[in-house]
Design a protein around this nucleic acid. Structure first.
Lengths: 207, 207
DNA sequence: CGGGTAGAGAACTTGACGTTTCTTATGGCA
DNA sequence: TGCCATAAGAAACGTCAAGTTCTCTACCCG
Protein backbone atom coordinates (compact mmCIF):
# COMPACT_ATOMS: atom_id res chain seq x y z
CA UNK A 1 0.00 0.00 0.00
CA UNK A 2 3.01 2.22 -0.13
CA UNK A 3 2.79 3.04 -3.80
CA UNK A 4 -0.39 3.95 -5.51
CA UNK A 5 0.09 3.12 -9.14
CA UNK A 6 0.81 -0.38 -10.25
CA UNK A 7 2.43 -0.18 -13.68
CA UNK A 8 2.62 1.57 -17.00
CA UNK A 9 4.08 4.79 -15.69
CA UNK A 10 5.13 7.40 -18.16
CA UNK A 11 8.20 9.56 -17.91
CA UNK A 12 6.38 11.95 -15.64
CA UNK A 13 4.95 9.40 -13.30
CA UNK A 14 1.57 9.22 -14.96
CA UNK A 15 -0.21 5.93 -14.56
CA UNK A 16 -2.18 4.13 -17.18
CA UNK A 17 -5.64 4.53 -15.83
CA UNK A 18 -7.85 3.65 -18.73
CA UNK A 19 -9.51 0.97 -16.63
CA UNK A 20 -9.21 1.84 -12.96
CA UNK A 21 -12.27 2.02 -10.73
CA UNK A 22 -13.48 5.50 -9.99
CA UNK A 23 -12.98 6.64 -6.37
CA UNK A 24 -14.58 9.43 -4.36
CA UNK A 25 -14.32 11.14 -1.02
CA UNK A 26 -11.67 9.97 1.37
CA UNK A 27 -10.25 7.29 -0.86
CA UNK A 28 -9.54 9.81 -3.55
CA UNK A 29 -8.34 12.34 -1.02
CA UNK A 30 -5.81 9.88 0.35
CA UNK A 31 -4.66 8.84 -3.08
CA UNK A 32 -3.99 12.47 -3.96
CA UNK A 33 -2.02 12.95 -0.76
CA UNK A 34 0.11 9.94 -1.53
CA UNK A 35 0.68 11.08 -5.07
CA UNK A 36 1.63 14.54 -3.86
CA UNK A 37 4.22 13.19 -1.48
CA UNK A 38 5.60 10.84 -4.07
CA UNK A 39 5.97 13.66 -6.58
CA UNK A 40 7.47 15.88 -3.93
CA UNK A 41 10.09 13.28 -3.20
CA UNK A 42 10.69 12.54 -6.86
CA UNK A 43 10.97 16.00 -8.39
CA UNK A 44 10.82 18.50 -5.53
CA UNK A 45 8.44 21.35 -4.87
CA UNK A 46 9.59 23.61 -7.66
CA UNK A 47 8.96 20.96 -10.29
CA UNK A 48 5.79 19.62 -8.78
CA UNK A 49 3.03 20.09 -11.35
CA UNK A 50 -0.63 19.72 -10.55
CA UNK A 51 -1.17 17.70 -13.69
CA UNK A 52 1.52 15.21 -12.74
CA UNK A 53 0.08 14.79 -9.28
CA UNK A 54 -3.31 14.21 -10.84
CA UNK A 55 -1.94 11.65 -13.24
CA UNK A 56 -0.02 9.84 -10.55
CA UNK A 57 -3.07 9.72 -8.34
CA UNK A 58 -5.12 8.47 -11.27
CA UNK A 59 -7.28 11.55 -10.79
CA UNK A 60 -8.16 14.66 -12.75
CA UNK A 61 -6.97 18.19 -12.28
CA UNK A 62 -10.58 19.10 -11.65
CA UNK A 63 -10.67 16.83 -8.62
CA UNK A 64 -7.59 18.53 -7.23
CA UNK A 65 -8.86 22.05 -7.73
CA UNK A 66 -12.21 21.11 -6.28
CA UNK A 67 -10.42 20.41 -2.97
CA UNK A 68 -7.50 22.82 -2.87
CA UNK A 69 -7.26 26.29 -4.27
CA UNK A 70 -3.58 26.02 -5.06
CA UNK A 71 -0.54 23.84 -5.13
CA UNK A 72 0.62 25.38 -1.86
CA UNK A 73 -2.53 24.38 -0.01
CA UNK A 74 -2.37 20.87 -1.37
CA UNK A 75 1.25 20.41 -0.38
CA UNK A 76 0.76 22.01 3.03
CA UNK A 77 -2.11 19.63 3.73
CA UNK A 78 -0.34 16.58 2.42
CA UNK A 79 2.90 17.19 4.29
CA UNK A 80 1.13 18.11 7.49
CA UNK A 81 -0.49 14.69 7.48
CA UNK A 82 2.82 12.86 7.32
CA UNK A 83 4.70 14.73 9.99
CA UNK A 84 5.24 12.53 13.03
CA UNK A 85 3.28 13.80 15.98
CA UNK A 86 5.39 16.04 18.14
CA UNK A 87 4.40 13.86 21.06
CA UNK A 88 7.79 12.21 20.93
CA UNK A 89 9.36 14.37 23.59
CA UNK A 90 12.91 13.45 24.35
CA UNK A 91 13.67 13.13 28.04
CA UNK A 92 17.23 12.08 28.62
CA UNK A 93 17.66 13.86 31.92
CA UNK A 94 20.00 16.42 30.40
CA UNK A 95 18.82 19.65 28.80
CA UNK A 96 21.70 19.61 26.38
CA UNK A 97 20.87 16.13 25.17
CA UNK A 98 17.18 16.91 24.98
CA UNK A 99 17.82 20.05 22.95
CA UNK A 100 20.16 18.26 20.60
CA UNK A 101 17.72 15.44 20.21
CA UNK A 102 14.94 17.87 19.25
CA UNK A 103 17.13 19.71 16.80
CA UNK A 104 18.28 16.46 15.22
CA UNK A 105 14.71 15.36 14.77
CA UNK A 106 13.80 18.64 13.09
CA UNK A 107 16.92 18.58 10.96
CA UNK A 108 16.08 15.11 9.74
CA UNK A 109 12.66 16.31 8.71
CA UNK A 110 14.05 19.37 6.98
CA UNK A 111 16.62 17.29 5.13
CA UNK A 112 13.86 15.24 3.54
CA UNK A 113 10.78 15.87 1.41
CA UNK A 114 9.12 17.85 4.20
CA UNK A 115 12.00 20.28 3.99
CA UNK A 116 11.51 20.58 0.26
CA UNK A 117 7.88 21.36 0.89
CA UNK A 118 8.53 23.92 3.58
CA UNK A 119 11.10 25.67 1.46
CA UNK A 120 8.58 25.80 -1.35
CA UNK A 121 5.76 27.00 0.84
CA UNK A 122 7.91 29.78 2.20
CA UNK A 123 8.75 30.73 -1.35
CA UNK A 124 5.08 30.89 -2.31
CA UNK A 125 4.62 33.23 0.60
CA UNK A 126 5.54 36.07 -1.75
CA UNK A 127 2.45 35.64 -3.84
CA UNK A 128 0.24 34.66 -0.96
CA UNK A 129 1.23 36.17 2.39
CA UNK A 130 -1.58 34.29 4.14
CA UNK A 131 0.50 31.17 3.67
CA UNK A 132 2.84 32.46 6.35
CA UNK A 133 0.19 31.97 8.98
CA UNK A 134 -0.44 28.44 7.78
CA UNK A 135 3.25 27.59 7.81
CA UNK A 136 3.73 29.09 11.25
CA UNK A 137 0.76 27.32 12.72
CA UNK A 138 1.52 23.93 11.23
CA UNK A 139 5.26 23.69 11.03
CA UNK A 140 6.79 26.25 13.33
CA UNK A 141 4.77 26.73 16.48
CA UNK A 142 4.66 23.03 17.38
CA UNK A 143 8.44 23.00 17.42
CA UNK A 144 8.63 25.99 19.72
CA UNK A 145 6.26 24.31 22.15
CA UNK A 146 8.41 21.22 22.15
CA UNK A 147 11.44 23.31 23.07
CA UNK A 148 9.55 25.12 25.75
CA UNK A 149 8.72 21.78 27.34
CA UNK A 150 12.34 20.73 27.29
CA UNK A 151 13.37 23.96 28.98
CA UNK A 152 10.65 23.63 31.58
CA UNK A 153 11.79 20.14 32.49
CA UNK A 154 15.33 21.45 32.68
CA UNK A 155 14.20 24.22 35.00
CA UNK A 156 12.47 21.70 37.21
CA UNK A 157 15.79 19.88 37.51
CA UNK A 158 17.60 23.12 38.28
CA UNK A 159 19.57 23.04 35.02
CA UNK A 160 17.83 26.06 33.57
CA UNK A 161 17.29 29.45 35.13
CA UNK A 162 13.57 30.08 35.30
CA UNK A 163 13.91 33.53 33.75
CA UNK A 164 15.00 31.80 30.55
CA UNK A 165 11.56 30.31 30.02
CA UNK A 166 10.50 32.93 27.47
CA UNK A 167 9.12 32.40 23.98
CA UNK A 168 12.08 34.31 22.60
CA UNK A 169 14.57 31.89 24.08
CA UNK A 170 12.49 28.78 23.50
CA UNK A 171 12.22 29.59 19.83
CA UNK A 172 15.94 30.18 19.43
CA UNK A 173 16.60 26.59 18.50
CA UNK A 174 13.88 26.34 15.87
CA UNK A 175 14.68 29.83 14.62
CA UNK A 176 18.38 29.26 14.15
CA UNK A 177 17.76 25.89 12.59
CA UNK A 178 15.24 27.27 10.14
CA UNK A 179 17.52 30.15 9.36
CA UNK A 180 20.34 27.76 8.57
CA UNK A 181 18.01 25.63 6.49
CA UNK A 182 16.80 28.53 4.41
CA UNK A 183 20.17 30.07 3.74
CA UNK A 184 22.22 26.96 3.02
CA UNK A 185 21.67 24.05 0.74
CA UNK A 186 20.82 20.73 2.31
CA UNK A 187 21.69 18.68 4.16
CA UNK A 188 22.08 20.46 7.49
CA UNK A 189 25.33 19.26 9.08
CA UNK A 190 25.12 17.95 12.62
CA UNK A 191 28.03 20.22 13.46
CA UNK A 192 25.77 23.25 13.01
CA UNK A 193 23.26 21.88 15.51
CA UNK A 194 25.90 21.25 18.14
CA UNK A 195 27.18 24.78 17.68
CA UNK A 196 23.73 26.26 18.16
CA UNK A 197 23.26 24.34 21.38
CA UNK A 198 26.72 24.79 22.87
CA UNK A 199 27.50 28.32 21.79
CA UNK A 200 24.11 29.92 22.06
CA UNK A 201 21.36 28.09 23.88
CA UNK A 202 23.23 26.45 26.74
CA UNK A 203 25.18 29.59 27.75
CA UNK A 204 21.94 31.53 27.70
CA UNK A 205 19.85 29.23 29.84
CA UNK A 206 22.44 28.12 32.33
CA UNK A 207 21.29 28.71 35.86
CA UNK B 1 17.78 62.19 -13.16
CA UNK B 2 15.76 60.21 -10.67
CA UNK B 3 13.13 58.97 -13.06
CA UNK B 4 13.87 57.71 -16.51
CA UNK B 5 10.71 58.14 -18.49
CA UNK B 6 9.26 61.54 -19.11
CA UNK B 7 5.62 61.06 -20.06
CA UNK B 8 3.04 58.92 -21.79
CA UNK B 9 3.18 56.00 -19.43
CA UNK B 10 0.75 53.19 -19.92
CA UNK B 11 -0.99 51.29 -17.17
CA UNK B 12 1.97 48.97 -16.85
CA UNK B 13 4.59 51.63 -16.71
CA UNK B 14 5.56 51.40 -20.34
CA UNK B 15 6.88 54.62 -21.80
CA UNK B 16 6.10 55.96 -25.21
CA UNK B 17 9.45 55.51 -26.85
CA UNK B 18 8.69 55.81 -30.51
CA UNK B 19 11.13 58.67 -30.74
CA UNK B 20 13.64 58.30 -27.95
CA UNK B 21 17.36 58.22 -28.60
CA UNK B 22 18.90 54.78 -28.54
CA UNK B 23 21.31 54.16 -25.66
CA UNK B 24 24.02 51.56 -25.21
CA UNK B 25 26.42 50.25 -22.62
CA UNK B 26 26.38 51.88 -19.22
CA UNK B 27 23.62 54.36 -19.98
CA UNK B 28 21.29 51.54 -20.87
CA UNK B 29 22.53 49.43 -17.99
CA UNK B 30 21.74 52.21 -15.55
CA UNK B 31 18.36 52.87 -17.06
CA UNK B 32 17.46 49.20 -16.66
CA UNK B 33 18.57 49.25 -13.02
CA UNK B 34 16.41 52.26 -12.34
CA UNK B 35 13.46 50.72 -14.08
CA UNK B 36 13.93 47.51 -12.12
CA UNK B 37 13.93 49.33 -8.80
CA UNK B 38 10.95 51.41 -9.77
CA UNK B 39 8.99 48.33 -10.76
CA UNK B 40 10.10 46.56 -7.62
CA UNK B 41 8.77 49.39 -5.51
CA UNK B 42 5.60 49.68 -7.54
CA UNK B 43 4.47 46.09 -7.89
CA UNK B 44 6.82 43.96 -5.81
CA UNK B 45 9.05 41.08 -6.75
CA UNK B 46 6.32 38.55 -7.42
CA UNK B 47 4.64 40.79 -9.97
CA UNK B 48 7.80 42.12 -11.55
CA UNK B 49 7.73 41.15 -15.23
CA UNK B 50 10.73 41.38 -17.50
CA UNK B 51 8.62 42.95 -20.20
CA UNK B 52 7.41 45.70 -17.91
CA UNK B 53 10.94 46.45 -16.79
CA UNK B 54 12.00 46.62 -20.41
CA UNK B 55 9.14 48.95 -21.29
CA UNK B 56 9.77 51.21 -18.37
CA UNK B 57 13.45 51.41 -19.21
CA UNK B 58 12.58 52.14 -22.82
CA UNK B 59 14.53 49.00 -23.69
CA UNK B 60 13.82 45.64 -25.24
CA UNK B 61 13.58 42.26 -23.57
CA UNK B 62 16.52 41.22 -25.70
CA UNK B 63 18.70 43.86 -24.07
CA UNK B 64 17.77 42.53 -20.66
CA UNK B 65 18.43 38.92 -21.47
CA UNK B 66 21.72 39.84 -23.13
CA UNK B 67 22.91 41.07 -19.73
CA UNK B 68 21.19 38.88 -17.19
CA UNK B 69 20.19 35.27 -17.47
CA UNK B 70 17.13 35.67 -15.31
CA UNK B 71 14.95 38.00 -13.36
CA UNK B 72 16.70 36.96 -10.16
CA UNK B 73 20.11 38.01 -11.43
CA UNK B 74 18.79 41.32 -12.65
CA UNK B 75 17.12 42.12 -9.37
CA UNK B 76 20.08 40.95 -7.31
CA UNK B 77 22.36 43.22 -9.30
CA UNK B 78 20.04 46.18 -9.24
CA UNK B 79 19.34 46.02 -5.52
CA UNK B 80 22.94 45.42 -4.64
CA UNK B 81 23.82 48.70 -6.32
CA UNK B 82 21.42 50.70 -4.19
CA UNK B 83 22.30 49.29 -0.79
CA UNK B 84 24.10 51.90 1.27
CA UNK B 85 27.68 50.91 1.85
CA UNK B 86 28.06 49.12 5.13
CA UNK B 87 30.78 51.62 5.96
CA UNK B 88 28.34 53.45 8.20
CA UNK B 89 29.45 51.73 11.37
CA UNK B 90 27.62 52.96 14.43
CA UNK B 91 29.91 53.82 17.31
CA UNK B 92 27.95 55.15 20.23
CA UNK B 93 30.28 53.86 22.89
CA UNK B 94 27.75 51.28 24.05
CA UNK B 95 27.49 47.78 22.56
CA UNK B 96 23.80 47.69 23.19
CA UNK B 97 23.21 50.93 21.31
CA UNK B 98 25.53 49.90 18.49
CA UNK B 99 23.77 46.56 18.09
CA UNK B 100 20.37 48.16 18.11
CA UNK B 101 21.49 50.75 15.62
CA UNK B 102 22.72 48.05 13.24
CA UNK B 103 19.56 46.04 13.57
CA UNK B 104 17.43 49.11 12.98
CA UNK B 105 19.38 49.89 9.86
CA UNK B 106 18.88 46.40 8.52
CA UNK B 107 15.23 46.39 9.49
CA UNK B 108 14.66 49.62 7.62
CA UNK B 109 16.19 48.07 4.53
CA UNK B 110 14.15 44.89 4.88
CA UNK B 111 10.96 46.88 5.35
CA UNK B 112 11.45 48.53 1.96
CA UNK B 113 11.89 47.42 -1.64
CA UNK B 114 15.20 45.74 -0.83
CA UNK B 115 13.32 43.48 1.52
CA UNK B 116 10.84 42.68 -1.21
CA UNK B 117 13.74 41.75 -3.44
CA UNK B 118 15.49 39.61 -0.88
CA UNK B 119 12.32 37.76 -0.08
CA UNK B 120 11.87 37.12 -3.77
CA UNK B 121 15.44 36.05 -4.33
CA UNK B 122 15.23 33.61 -1.46
CA UNK B 123 12.07 32.26 -3.00
CA UNK B 124 13.77 31.74 -6.36
CA UNK B 125 16.39 29.79 -4.51
CA UNK B 126 14.21 26.73 -4.96
CA UNK B 127 14.63 26.70 -8.69
CA UNK B 128 18.19 27.90 -8.64
CA UNK B 129 20.14 26.91 -5.53
CA UNK B 130 23.19 28.81 -6.76
CA UNK B 131 21.29 31.96 -5.91
CA UNK B 132 21.86 31.17 -2.24
CA UNK B 133 25.54 31.84 -2.61
CA UNK B 134 24.82 35.14 -4.33
CA UNK B 135 22.38 36.20 -1.64
CA UNK B 136 24.73 35.21 1.16
CA UNK B 137 27.69 36.97 -0.37
CA UNK B 138 25.86 40.17 -1.20
CA UNK B 139 23.24 40.62 1.45
CA UNK B 140 24.13 38.46 4.42
CA UNK B 141 27.87 38.27 4.99
CA UNK B 142 28.38 42.05 5.01
CA UNK B 143 25.93 42.32 7.87
CA UNK B 144 27.72 39.69 9.89
CA UNK B 145 30.99 41.53 9.44
CA UNK B 146 29.40 44.71 10.65
CA UNK B 147 28.23 42.95 13.80
CA UNK B 148 31.61 41.39 14.35
CA UNK B 149 33.13 44.86 14.30
CA UNK B 150 30.68 46.12 16.84
CA UNK B 151 31.46 43.21 19.14
CA UNK B 152 35.18 43.72 18.71
CA UNK B 153 34.93 47.35 19.69
CA UNK B 154 32.82 46.30 22.66
CA UNK B 155 35.46 43.78 23.67
CA UNK B 156 38.13 46.48 23.45
CA UNK B 157 36.08 48.52 25.91
CA UNK B 158 35.66 45.53 28.18
CA UNK B 159 31.93 45.30 27.58
CA UNK B 160 32.13 42.00 25.74
CA UNK B 161 33.89 38.83 26.78
CA UNK B 162 36.47 38.00 24.16
CA UNK B 163 35.28 34.41 23.91
CA UNK B 164 32.07 35.76 22.43
CA UNK B 165 33.82 36.94 19.28
CA UNK B 166 32.76 33.96 17.21
CA UNK B 167 30.99 33.93 13.83
CA UNK B 168 28.14 32.05 15.44
CA UNK B 169 27.48 34.79 17.96
CA UNK B 170 28.22 37.67 15.60
CA UNK B 171 25.67 36.36 13.12
CA UNK B 172 23.01 35.94 15.77
CA UNK B 173 21.63 39.41 15.18
CA UNK B 174 21.38 39.18 11.41
CA UNK B 175 20.14 35.60 11.66
CA UNK B 176 17.32 36.32 14.07
CA UNK B 177 16.35 39.42 12.15
CA UNK B 178 16.24 37.59 8.83
CA UNK B 179 14.35 34.76 10.44
CA UNK B 180 11.75 37.17 11.74
CA UNK B 181 11.59 38.87 8.39
CA UNK B 182 10.99 35.64 6.50
CA UNK B 183 8.37 34.26 8.82
CA UNK B 184 6.29 37.35 9.47
CA UNK B 185 4.75 39.88 7.21
CA UNK B 186 6.33 43.32 7.13
CA UNK B 187 7.02 45.65 8.70
CA UNK B 188 9.35 44.36 11.39
CA UNK B 189 8.34 45.96 14.71
CA UNK B 190 11.06 47.70 16.67
CA UNK B 191 9.93 45.74 19.68
CA UNK B 192 11.26 42.56 18.10
CA UNK B 193 14.70 44.09 17.64
CA UNK B 194 14.92 45.22 21.23
CA UNK B 195 13.95 41.76 22.38
CA UNK B 196 16.66 40.15 20.29
CA UNK B 197 19.27 42.44 21.75
CA UNK B 198 18.16 42.40 25.38
CA UNK B 199 17.05 38.81 25.73
CA UNK B 200 19.58 37.07 23.57
CA UNK B 201 22.63 38.94 22.41
CA UNK B 202 23.47 41.07 25.45
CA UNK B 203 23.13 38.23 28.00
CA UNK B 204 25.35 36.08 25.79
CA UNK B 205 28.19 38.49 25.27
CA UNK B 206 28.33 40.09 28.69
CA UNK B 207 31.82 39.90 30.14
C1' DC C 1 31.58 58.12 -44.32
C1' DG C 2 30.68 53.19 -44.35
C1' DG C 3 30.22 48.85 -42.09
C1' DG C 4 29.91 46.13 -37.88
C1' DT C 5 27.75 46.03 -33.46
C1' DA C 6 24.09 46.41 -30.53
C1' DG C 7 19.52 47.92 -29.55
C1' DA C 8 14.24 48.27 -30.54
C1' DG C 9 10.33 45.99 -31.29
C1' DA C 10 7.37 42.49 -32.45
C1' DA C 11 6.32 37.81 -33.48
C1' DC C 12 6.83 33.33 -31.96
C1' DT C 13 7.42 28.99 -29.05
C1' DT C 14 6.76 26.78 -24.93
C1' DG C 15 4.90 25.38 -20.62
C1' DA C 16 1.95 25.54 -16.84
C1' DC C 17 -2.08 27.30 -14.58
C1' DG C 18 -6.67 27.17 -13.78
C1' DT C 19 -11.30 26.60 -16.08
C1' DT C 20 -14.78 24.54 -18.75
C1' DT C 21 -17.21 21.03 -21.06
C1' DC C 22 -18.81 16.60 -21.89
C1' DT C 23 -19.31 11.97 -20.72
C1' DT C 24 -19.70 8.34 -17.39
C1' DA C 25 -19.32 5.86 -13.00
C1' DT C 26 -20.92 5.70 -8.18
C1' DG C 27 -23.63 5.56 -4.25
C1' DG C 28 -27.75 7.06 -1.85
C1' DC C 29 -32.55 6.77 -1.78
C1' DA C 30 -37.11 5.51 -3.04
C1' DT D 1 -33.88 -3.22 -7.46
C1' DG D 2 -33.55 0.62 -10.27
C1' DC D 3 -33.31 5.76 -10.70
C1' DC D 4 -30.81 9.87 -10.54
C1' DA D 5 -28.13 13.67 -8.50
C1' DT D 6 -23.49 14.13 -7.64
C1' DA D 7 -18.87 13.87 -8.40
C1' DA D 8 -15.19 11.88 -11.15
C1' DG D 9 -12.24 11.39 -15.53
C1' DA D 10 -10.50 13.26 -19.55
C1' DA D 11 -9.49 16.50 -22.78
C1' DA D 12 -9.67 20.89 -24.70
C1' DC D 13 -9.37 25.66 -23.94
C1' DG D 14 -8.00 30.59 -22.67
C1' DT D 15 -4.44 33.08 -20.42
C1' DC D 16 -0.11 34.68 -19.35
C1' DA D 17 4.70 35.36 -19.01
C1' DA D 18 9.27 33.38 -19.95
C1' DG D 19 12.65 33.31 -23.08
C1' DT D 20 14.05 33.21 -28.13
C1' DT D 21 14.41 34.78 -32.77
C1' DC D 22 13.74 37.78 -36.43
C1' DT D 23 14.07 42.16 -38.95
C1' DC D 24 15.11 46.71 -39.12
C1' DT D 25 17.70 50.64 -37.70
C1' DA D 26 20.51 53.77 -34.84
C1' DC D 27 24.90 54.42 -33.05
C1' DC D 28 30.03 54.28 -32.73
C1' DC D 29 34.64 53.43 -34.44
C1' DG D 30 37.90 53.44 -37.64
Amino acid sequence: MTTVSEAGKTAHGAADHRKGPRRRGDALHTAIFEATLTELTAVGYAELKMEHVANRARASKGSLYRRWASRAELVADAVHHTIPSCAERPDTGSVREDLLSCLRGFATLLNGPSGEAIRGLMADTIRNPDLMDVVRARFIDPGVNLFLDVLRRGAARGEVRTTALTPRIASLGPDLLREYFLVHRPPIPDRALVEMVDEVIIPLIRA
